[in-house]
Design a protein around this nucleic acid. Structure first.
Length: 271
DNA sequence: AAGTGGACCTGCTAGC
DNA sequence: TGCTAGCAGGTCCACT
């Protein structure tokens, strides 16, 4: 699930509360995508510092090293002073003096990985090939235009890939392309500079707007306080196959690209 | 080098 | 009512 808005909403919902806490215990459930990368007891006694985000990853910094976390498709983090016994899908607890940070992830595509630093070890490896942050000045029409020129895929696939710009997953890639009026099947390399500028704006605005709604809760997602997102009630095309476009009334279509569903309005979106 | 498809894992729903 | 196929927010990795 979690795309950039959900990951950022999660970060904002616990970063300040956990800052300064001391780790008192770590509990591991079923295996996640990768092993933790250190013996759990070695985390005990460390002090939590900042929590930052890079793409869809969260970095929980300790006084030394930190944990890189990813929510996969079905993960969510909860942080509360008091936490009940772990359920069947609770696979990681970071118990601290201020509360327990718990990863719940039914599908277990998520990850919690120890790394000695953001630029070192597993964290460096996983973050190495990520594209620019959508809210960075570096992400603009020129950047997008330049990056797309050498790509031999459709624009939807290019956005979803994350090597040009991070953060837009399946929901927001579809929504941003709708907002920019671009057909998701269009060849990435043929998008004009002007339309790239519109698309960069659309990506930023779509993600920002979704964040303002607390992200989207299709199924599992909650922020670290347990709040659901509501952006799913404001989508224009995602999961609206067969329904009328809010803007032109044409029927929203679904096609499959790179083994993922793509939704678009044939009336509003052009190649 | 860049593109494609498979893999990871569980739960829910639509359809028979 | 019960079973099954298909689908779901991501992304790494092996192969072409």
């Amino acid at each position: 699930m979690p795309e950039l808005p959900e990951v950022e909403a999660t970060r904002q919902s616990f970063a300040k509360r956990i800052a300064g806490a001391k780790v008192t215990a770590v509990r591991l459930g079923k295996p996640l995508r990768w092993p933790l990368g250190c013996a759990a007891p070695t985390l005990v006694g460390r002090r939590v510092g900042e929590v930052c985000r890079r793409g869809k990853y969260l970095w929980v910094a300790f006084d030394e090293g930190g944990l890189l976390m990813h929510l996969g498709m079905s993960g969510s983090l909860a942080f509360a002073p008091r936490t009940g016994p772990p359920g069947a899908h609770d696979h990681f607890d970071l118990v601290t003096t201020r509360g327990t940070l718990r990863l719940t992830d039914p599908r277990r595509f998520g990850a919690v990985v120890w790394s000695p630093g953001l630029q070192q070890g597993m964290a460096a490896k996983l973050l190495a090939d990520l594209g620019v942050e959508p809210f960075d000045d570096a992400f603009n029409g020129d950047h997008l235009h330049r990056a797309l020129r050498s790509r031999n895929v459709t624009i939807k696939t290019a956005l979803l890939g994350g090597s040009i710009v991070v953060g837009a997953g399946n929901i927001y890639a579809c929504e941003a392309l709708f907002a920019a009026g671009i057909d998701p099947r269009a060849a990435a390399r043929r998008i004009s500079r002007a339309r790239c500028a519109a698309l960069a704006d659309a990506v930023r605005q779509t993600l920002a707007r979704a964040l303002s709604f607390g992200g989207s809760t299709l199924r599992n997602y909650r922020d670290a306080r347990g709040a659901s997102g509501t952006f799913q009630f404001h989508v224009d095309v995602y999961a609206r196959e067969g329904q009328p476009c809010h803007r032109c009334g044409a029927t929203v279509r679904r096609v499959v690209q790179a083994q993922r569903s793509t939704y678009f309005c044939p009336g509003c979106q052009r190649r």
